[in-house]
């Protein structure tokens, strides 16, 4: 029997079904609210505490590690079908803390706090000495590579003119002198790609249609540029308004749990 007063919480095992269920609801929550980048998947549950909540229910205080997948957040592919970014591709890890309310058998996220960080260059080169590393997204060579790749995609397209939404990922290929590998998100506009003279006259479609492009840009030694690019357009996604969980008043909630009253922000879209 532990010394001192019994804590107000219980600690199931991190691999218990109830713990994993709360963690999976939390991961689904962040993937629905990420504004940019890639979907994340559950990698490990670090810790769990379950607090009783007055008058009913329980609050799961759970800390998890996630790993980035290769699916962009706008990609409707189910998370289960998204590959985890491998270490040799320069993996990215997430570290998240959640409060998940369980009431009447339903789980809903009360608060979420996440940070993500790429693996270290040493770790990447330990598994693959010549693998490319992540490059800064605002590097001028990256921005130029994306502009050339998007222009090439629009030039060969019979469909809508695609507009850049975000540069999602970039790597400098270490062996080829000036090769840049880029991934970026796009959105369809109301212009036909081959007729566009002034892109500023094109507007995003009312019912947004996003897409995702992967390209390789090479600056040839004797001058000139080469680019290969493939873009995939996603089906238009009906806007589903997220039912906001009944967010309890944080202070009252904290008192009920005997926690420090930490004012949790409304569940905002996660950047």
């Amino acid at each position: 029997v532990p010394h001192g007063p019994m804590p107000g919480y219980r600690e199931p095992a991190c691999d218990d079904p109830e713990t994993e269920q709360a963690a999976l609801v939390a991961v689904d929550y962040i993937n629905k609210r990420l504004l940019r980048g890639y979907k994340h998947t559950l990698n490990q549950i670090d810790s769990i505490r379950v607090w009783p909540r007055q008058p009913t229910g329980e609050v799961y205080e759970v800390e998890i590690d996630t790993l980035e997948t290769t699916c962009h957040v706008r990609d409707p592919t189910p998370l289960a079908n998204c590959s985890v970014r491998q270490m040799k591709e320069h993996a990215v890890e997430g570290d998240c803390d959640f409060h998940v309310l369980k009431q009447d058998g339903q789980l809903s996220v009360l608060s979420a706090k996440c940070d993500s960080s790429p693996d270290s260059a040493e770790d990447v080169h330990r598994v693959c000495p010549n693998c490319p590393l992540l490059a800064p997204l605002n590097d001028s060579r990256v921005v130029h590579a994306v502009e050339v790749a998007l222009a090439a995609s629009n030039a060969q397209s019979n469909g809508s003119y695609l507009q850049l939404v975000e540069i999602s990922r970039a790597q400098f290929a270490p062996l080829q002198a000036a090769a840049v590998y880029v991934e970026f998100a796009v959105a369809a506009t109301d212009c036909v790609a081959k007729d566009v003279t002034d892109p500023a006259t094109c507007n995003l479609l009312a019912e947004k249609q996003y897409g995702f492009c992967r390209g390789t840009f090479i600056e040839k030694v004797g001058g000139g540029e080469d680019v290969t690019v493939t873009c995939t357009l996603f089906p238009t996604q009906p806007v589903i308004l997220q039912p906001q969980p009944e967010a309890p008043t944080p202070v009252a909630e904290a008192d009920a749990l005997g926690l420090e009253p930490v004012v949790q922000p409304e569940p905002e879209p996660l950047e």
């Binding site: 095992a13 691999d15 990698n43 490990q44 670090d46 790993l67 270490m87």
Partner: peptide, 29 residues
């Protein structure tokens, strides 16, 4: 026989399985 959590009793069952952190589903970075 009462033992402190996390300390296997002498001659008792095998090592105590720590409840957390849980299993790693892919790899750690």
């Amino acid at each position: 026989k009462g033992v402190l959590p996390g300390i296997p009793a002498a001659g008792g069952p095998g090592p105590v399985i720590r409840p957390c952190p849980g299993r790693i589903r892919y790899f750690k970075i």
